[in-house]
């Protein structure tokens, strides 16, 4: 009973979870749109507009899955790593920083790997890379929210990015329907 009360006492508000999700969605969907601009010229060469939109439907469907998984992962990490700290007020900014560290690390590593000869480097350095990311993320997300203005900026950002949820999430559900219909016999 006590443990349950303890857990419930540390659960963040729905509003702060929504703020975290808004940041996750913005980052994940924006990255997809950004990389699609590299592909778009070649798609225009051989795909009709309808087919290009269908490719985006696949992308947004995957983004929806990806964002939900990322949110679940970040919440789990935050609730376990920072369990001993009760400061729920920092939860939102802490989780955002943790996510940004992981996302930036992933994107940087993907962008820096551009050569078949680098496979071995990619594979051998992978453990060290993620350990460093993890530790750095831990430190940054634990300490940075202690600085008042950092917390204010991150919370303000999360609040403002919620608008993207109203755009991307309905688009994703429409995309899911498109993907579903394209894949039924």
């Amino acid at each position: 009973m006590k443990l349950l009360q303890l857990l419930l006492g540390r659960l963040p508000s729905k509003k702060s979870i929504l703020g975290i999700y808004a940041v996750i969605v913005t980052v994940i969907y924006s990255w997809t749109l950004f990389t699609s601009f590299y592909k778009l010229p070649s798609w225009l060469f051989y795909l009709t507009v309808g087919k290009i939109l269908s490719v985006y439907a696949y992308a947004f469907s995957l983004n929806l899955l990806e964002s939900v998984l990322a949110l679940a992962g970040i919440l789990l990490l935050d609730l376990t790593l920072f369990f001993v700290w009760k400061n729920v007020g920092e939860f939102q900014s802490r989780s955002i920083l943790l996510f940004l560290c992981i996302a930036a690390s992933s994107v940087f590593r993907l962008a820096s790997f551009g050569d078949y000869g680098a496979i071995n480097f990619f594979l051998t350095a992978e453990g060290a890379w993620w350990l460093t990311t993890f530790l750095l993320g831990l430190i940054v997300s634990a300490l940075a929210p202690k600085i008042h203005w950092v917390r204010l900026v991150l919370d303000g950002l999360a609040e403002r990015l919620i608008i993207f949820l109203y755009i991307y999430i309905p688009l994703s559900f429409i995309s899911l329907i498109i993907v579903f219909f394209r894949n039924i016999q």
């Binding site: 980052v27 994940i28 990255w31 997809t32 990389t35 699609s36 590299y38 592909k39 992308a59 995957l62 983004n63 899955l65 990806e66 998984l69 990322a70 992981i102 996302a103 992933s106 994107v107 993907l110 962008a111 790997f113 551009g114 050569d115 078949y116 496979i119």
Partner: peptide, 10 residues
């Protein structure tokens, strides 16, 4: 080898 995935995490 070198293509940048449209999905950043997955």
């Amino acid at each position: 080898e070198s293509a940048l995935p449209g999905s950043s995490l997955l």
